[in-house]
Design a protein around this nucleic acid. Structure first.
Lengths: 228, 228
DNA sequence: GCTCATATCTTGGTATACCATCGGACAAAG
DNA sequence: CTTTGTCCGATGGTATACCAAGATATGAGC
């Protein structure tokens, strides 16, 4: 026991090596920039320009672009270089379908195992959600929703699915904020999340799953109107 | 009609620009090497060594590693560099669950829309599957199964889900061949695929989905025995 | 003989140099 | 005025050089 305590102390002593390699910082910035709409879809990403914008060398930029390419946020045009990925309705439709499949099983899993502490965490995230939605802050709502689902996925032991969903969400990020800007969505969204939570709170996996499917389906319907 | 023919000829004239940038070739080779087990899980991927093994510069290798990292085939150890990703049972379990979700909806979608030409293509893939399984060729069976599902996903308009499934499959590739090497699996696998096909052939989405879930579930069960 | 310090070697991180190709501007020929 | 040839700048692809940090070996001192 003493040994354990000692090890813990020593571990706590450890100087937090900033996981901040230049590349990771640049990756994060670039990803946020794309998701945040700082770059338009289809816009060319000229390497040397990005170099001076981010203040790093081309090597870093290129490796970051490789990563974003694999994530689906950037597309490579042969002989022309990278551009910000564009999104058509068919792709978006599929993404919403996949989300519906993964999120509904995740909430069901979560409902099966949810104990008091998870429910408390979810309740807190939901409070944040209502607060931001009352403030009419689309990005705030998005963050709160993300937090809610993050808890759901991790509680159910679905971290890989969470990774996939996160990646898919970043590909439809623009769509998501536009979807949220739809006025009635600002109120209906939290309502549906509340419904999902109620099912989880009652440990009713099936109800949670169907509520979740409804939630994603509603978002997809709005997205379809916007995009097509 | 004449116009059409003309356009076709013109298109045929086009000089095949080799999609062969060094990086893409190297990416392909590396991915195959990892999936094929040429590198052990956990094995360090020393950049300079790979350079001379592949005959390219470090820039290329590093960009390839970024890509593979984003794909989940390679992990980065802080201050130590890249290693071949390792697989624990919890991750594998999740991957099989996600596959079950995505593949079952894909076969259901396929069953809903499958026409004669799709069914013919599936039948052909299944013939290949039976042939390779009789020859006791695990990799052949794997390829044939992959081809079968590829047709299924594309027929149902689920190319993004296919991309995700492919990526997940590459992460459990070692497990898959080990799973197939299980003797009874060599015969039961094709049988289950045949069952899925029968449901698609009868355009019965629900039956196809449940057969598919059974198929993936059986694979997961064997994987669990192997891995834990 | 064991320990600790230092030298060195390996390895990844970063920056830069060089080259081939593409695209547009401009000019000359019809 | 259109067309075509050519040149030049921009851009991506590739290779290499340099640096800092860890790991390892070696040797001095106790």
């Amino acid at each position: 026991m003493v040994m354990k305590k000692n090890a813990e102390n020593l571990a706590a002593l450890r100087i937090e090596t900033p996981p901040a390699t230049l590349r990771e910082i640049a990756l994060d910035r670039m990803r946020r920039a794309i998701i945040g709409g700082l770059f338009e879809p289809g816009e060319r990403l000229v390497e040397r320009t990005l170099c001076e914008q981010l203040g790093v060398s081309r090597s870093v930029i290129r490796e970051v672009i490789r990563h974003l390419e694999a994530e689906g946020l950037v597309e490579m045009l042969a002989k022309q270089g990278p551009i910000v990925a564009t999104l058509n309705w068919d792709d978006a439709r599929q993404i919403y379908e996949i989300r519906a499949a993964l999120e509904s099983t995740a909430v069901a899993d979560c409902a099966k195992v949810a104990g008091p502490e998870i429910k408390t965490a979810l309740r807190k995230a939901m409070g944040e959600l209502e607060r931001t939605s009352k403030q009419n802050s689309p990005v705030g709502v998005l963050d709160a929703t993300t937090e809610f689902y993050k808890i759901v996925f991790e509680a159910g032991g679905n971290n890989i699915a969470w990774e996939i969903v996160s990646r898919l969400n970043s590909r439809i990020s623009r769509l998501r904020v536009m979807t949220l800007s739809t006025s009635n969505r600002m109120t209906s969204g939290p309502l549906q999340i509340r419904e999902i939570f109620a099912a989880i709170d009652g440990n009713d996996g099936e109800a949670a799953a169907s509520a979740c499917r409804a939630h994603v389906g509603a978002a997809a319907a709005i997205a379809k109107i916007i995009l097509s």
